[in-house]
Design a protein around this nucleic acid. Sequence first.
DNA 1: CTCATGTATTTTGTATACATGGATTGTACT
DNA 2: AGTACAATCCATGTATACAAAATACATGAG
Lengths: 227, 227
Amino acid sequence: MQDNLQITMDQFLPLRDVVFNTLRQAILTGELKPGERLMEIHLANRLGVSRTPIREAIRKLELEGLVIMIPRRGAEVAQITEKSMNDVLEVRRAVDALCVELACDRITEDELVRLKEACDNFEQVVNTGDIKQIAQADVALHDIIVQATGNMRLVQLINNLSEQMYRYRFEYIKDSSQHGRLIEEHRMIYDSIVRKDKDEACKAAKIHIDNQKQAIMDQLRLERTAR
Amino acid sequence: MQDNLQITMDQFLPLRDVVFNTLRQAILTGELKPGERLMEIHLANRLGVSRTPIREAIRKLELEGLVIMIPRRGAEVAQITEKSMNDVLEVRRAVDALCVELACDRITEDELVRLKEACDNFEQVVNTGDIKQIAQADVALHDIIVQATGNMRLVQLINNLSEQMYRYRFEYIKDSSQHGRLIEEHRMIYDSIVRKDKDEACKAAKIHIDNQKQAIMDQLRLERTAR
DNA sequence: CTCATGTATTTTGTATACATGGATTGTACT
DNA sequence: AGTACAATCCATGTATACAAAATACATGAG
């Protein structure tokens, strides 16, 4: 790990939150690798702050499950096992289904328009082939649906569950053979929400997750054999 | 709030975890009331530790949603609104359904026996009328089902979602007119898991939550009008 | 040569000190 | 009497200091 870790003084956030976001990002992007130790003094020097904000950030990462604490030894980046990924995806499958179901009931006309735009945008961006943009368009699309539920707890939960998959998102999206299917699945979800057809929406959402699961599991096994 | 807040040096846990558990418990039991400020120095004196473990505990409570942070003003116990409770219960309804569904697939013979015992035990304890014991038996029963899923993420999630309802559990259980229904619902869930009937299990779990929701909402409105 | 023991170093856990921003209170002026 | 402004206090945010535990390394005995 080299010194890509850089603090951005964007906001007037307390340092602990800045550190939290920084470390979180570093873990999710794989800059901090699973098993890597998070040593307070090193991080403090690296980020140019004292140990206090570092420790407080680690407490939050701990609860979020991104790092695990070993008593009297400190924190290290949590391992991603096939089991843990399976657990997450199992929950997400149910939660995403709830999400589209609620969206059917509660989505506003305005949000529906924006959802359509997001779908179209995704399709266009896929054609450009820019992975980063595609990932971003995908997030934007799902965000609209999650927000449409009006359930803040659900929003928070899905964010937390999604972050585990974050580092595999790229690999998944990189595989351009999947792009057609992605567009198709998004369209199915959109259509069923327009029709307020909860059953279909549920089904579509579950299929969407199942396919992601397949891709992620393939990726995980690939990494394993490579090692 | 008087000085019921007491640290129990049960374990060799770091102080931050002891403080975390202590404050968590205090919030869940209502000893620390919604809106009450958590002032670090006061708590530190009260618990006989320094500010550092207090602060770290608060960071975890913050992420868990039990306290909210106001910049430059510190932490206070999160308000429970009808909306937030609704949000939680909405998620729990879906997650509990997933739970029994998975349990149908994965529960072991041994766990099934213990589940039966827990059902019977609950029935017996209800007859004693001891509220505390009833609550405990209820938790034990649900714990077996959640554990049977083998999904650690799900276990953690349900724990987190349950804690919001914790302080209403008593009121709900106190109402002895509900006891018959509770026993009935537990039995329905147990039976469908035995038969591996996922659909029925789901339905039963959802009904179980719906009834709790009703009771909790009644309770909340009662509190509101009382104020 | 291997293993154990003791010491030194490193790192966490905890406490405390210092700085800053907000809130409150008091006073003066309208 | 009410409002505005200033001084003071208090709590948080941050940094640092101190203590205890764990690890690593070296030295010595078997």
